[in-house]
Design a protein around this nucleic acid. Structure first.
Lengths: 211, 211
DNA sequence: TCTTAATATGACAGTCTGTCATATGTCAAT
DNA sequence: ATTGACATATGACAGACTGTCATATTAAGA
């Protein structure tokens, strides 16, 4: 987390630093990005940087935090539009992800994602843990559209959903053919909606009953 | 990929190097692991290392490749045992993952996973892409137990399954309470078996029909 | 024995990171 | 206006790491 000092900074200086950071992370994979380059670019002295952030990861996480925050906001907005239909909202999210008609910063962030697919996925998988997700989203989801049996299952469903949505968004950001990405994503959602246990097969329910 | 020179090396020297690598990666997260430390530990000169591997990532991937290979072999073995029941085989895989009664190298690899959860997941998600998985596993899976409609769906199902299995394995390796990890994993599998579209709801099938 | 190619080695240049002693600015109280 | 106390700024520096390269060593065939 950035230090308080960072937030005390004049908006302009703060933005300059973040912009330089986006530029750097957008050009190289995380491991190769250098604090040196960022501060050179932003024109702030070495010592100052360490006054604001504890290290490269601190800075990177902060950038990603804000990005994910925006995605979540967007998802909530879409959930409202789709009257709580989780699957529909997520599908639209992926559909949109190809749009490049965004702000400079937005596009740079996509570029960051592109160069840091791996790290970004880490981020998704770790920071979007079930509890947080449920808290943030539960209110906007129409549960009657879902085949849930227990309260706790929502968290796990979201876990699964983000496990497939994040890669889809990344793939789209990386510039893969959006049509293909979407096609695959839809198949995945269908699998999840329909269920994979063969209807005739008794095996499938065993673990469920045991529990 | 390691150079041919590396494979020409006497078994002993090769193993010494890999052992040192496991030790290093087991102690620090990927970004902090240093080639310096590894070669110091293994007692080989700097230049030699670069004769074998092109850089840290090359070495790391090689280590992980072998690890994943073992996991896949194990999964295939379990699939045979469970008569092609994919869900049962995966569940046993996670159940087993708590066992620490393994070889030194095995335990070190788990430790590597622990310290590199993120990178490891990248690895899983990138190297176990559907095509490879289907090719490797399809023959051992009893498709009649699954509710598949099209050929290509198997790949996507495996994608989803590994998306939840990898984190579960990692969680277990990290030392989280195995009981809890398993409980969550079982819930996730049930969700996947049962399907999440509310039975009464017509919405759920829309995308499927459109496609 | 001589030649040629493969392998081994460690010194080196260039870069990076995190720290720290010092300098500068801020602000309230005297 | 002066002082003290505290927050912030700065860049020189020590330590560490990486990848390369010229040179040395070994192996193998003619």
């Amino acid at each position: 987390m950035p230090s308080q000092t960072f937030f005390n900074l004049p908006e302009e200086k703060r933005e300059t630093l973040l912009q330089a950071a986006r530029r750097e992370f957008a050009q190289k994979p995380y491991a190769d990005a250098s604090i040196n380059q960022i501060i050179r670019d932003a024109g702030i002295p070495r010592g100052s940087f360490y006054m604001y952030f504890s290290d490269k990861e601190d800075l990177f996480r902060y950038l990603m935090d804000r990005h994910v925050e925006k995605l979540l906001d967007r998802l909530i907005w879409l959930l409202r539009e789709e009257e709580g239909d989780l699957f529909a909202a997520l599908t639209r999210m992926v559909e949109e992800s190809g749009d490049t008609s965004r702000l400079q910063a937005q596009r740079e962030l996509l570029q960051v994602v592109r160069n840091n697919l791996g790290v970004h996925q880490i981020y998704f998988l770790h920071s979007l843990r079930p509890h947080c997700l449920v808290e943030r989203l539960a209110g906007y989801i129409d549960l009657s559209r879902l085949n849930l049996r227990r309260e706790e299952e929502l968290g796990e469903l979201l876990h699964i959903l983000f496990g497939i949505t994040a890669p889809a968004l990344c793939a789209a950001a990386v510039g893969n053919d959006l049509g293909q990405v979407l096609a695959r994503y839809r198949v995945q959602l269908d699998i999840l909606k329909r269920g994979m246990a063969a209807p005739s097969s008794p095996h499938a329910w065993e673990t469920n009953l045991k529990e």
